[in-house]
């Protein structure tokens, strides 16, 4: 009880201190009409019609894939590690997969009512269209592969909630295919990153050397594919019913 009071009081004091620092001293520099020098540099130098250019009139994309390209590249790898970490915890051996398939066949067939299903179909088509436009226009308009991939993942989650895992698997989006698509997206990114070295004798990630906007376009599309199918891979494993997974786990413990 006494500890709770101490914690509450110390949080209140911290808040008051931050409030004083932000409002009276303005440590964050909020509310100015001036740009920071770094921001001004990026805005001024990102796009030029001739000479060295990032090929992107959208300065955020120029920063993400040109100025801070390595950061973004390694964030892709962080994403890969997170997905693979989740996937390796939930992995199933080949026998377990066949047990799961047997048990899933026994599951009762349920579906939501017509209004929900019809609306979801409409909304999913719209989300897919919008996410594709975000990804393919990534170098011209706000957004890019990451954003488009997360939007697409939302569409797939909607399909999961309203229809089921089996609907997706019947349409061909099973685990093997999604992992292959994920690998394809990563391969596209790696190929684009390494292409300047082998084709033009430049350095890794020097995508300005590639003709026109190919580099940015490829990276956006690769990121789009990778994020979408990375999420879908984990959703597919998480979508296995709780009782089925418990049965499989119990079998593992008994062995």
């Amino acid at each position: 009880m006494k500890r709770d009071v101490i914690v509450a009081v110390s949080f209140l004091l911290a808040f008051l201190f931050i409030a004083y620092a932000v409002v009276y001293i303005n440590v964050l520099g909020l509310g100015g009409a001036e740009l920071r020098p770094l921001g001004e540099f990026y805005l001024g130098h990102a796009f030029a019609h001739e000479g060295l250019t990032s090929h992107s009139p959208e300065v955020v994309t120029a920063i993400v894939w040109n100025y801070r390209g390595f950061d973004t590249l390694f964030e892709t790898f962080v994403f890969f590690l997170a997905i693979m970490g989740a996937f390796s915890v939930l992995r199933l051996t080949r026998e377990q997969e066949s047990i799961v398939r047997e048990l899933e066949a026994k599951e009762p067939h349920r579906q939501m009512d017509l209004i929900t299903r019809a609306t979801t179909k409409l909304v999913v088509v719209m989300i897919v269209a919008i996410s594709a436009s975000i990804a393919l226009h990534g170098h011209l308009t706000p957004g890019g592969g990451f954003q488009a991939g997360s939007a697409m993942a939302v569409a797939l989650l909607l399909l999961f909630a309203v229809f089921s895992k089996f609907t997706l698997e019947r349409k061909g989006l099973n685990l093997r295919h999604t992992i292959s698509a994920y690998a394809l997206g990563l391969a596209l990114i790696l190929a684009t990153v390494l292409a300047p070295v082998f084709l033009y004798g430049g350095k890794v990630l020097e995508i300005n050397l590639l003709p026109g906007e190919t580099g940015l376009f490829n990276l956006d599309v690769g990121e789009y594919t990778a994020v979408t199918f990375g999420f879908l891979t984990v959703f597919l494993v998480l979508g296995v019913s709780e009782w089925i997974f418990k049965t499989v786990l119990r079998g593992e413990v008994d062995d």
């Binding site: 770094l38 921001g39 990026y42 955020v60 920063i63 964030e75 990451f146 954003q147 997360s150 994020v227």
Partner: peptide, 14 residues
């Protein structure tokens, strides 16, 4: 300022 936007863009997905 484009720099904070570029930072947040990847932070969301990560």
């Amino acid at each position: 300022d484009p720099v904070p936007q570029a930072l947040v863009l990847t932070a969301i997905v990560i």
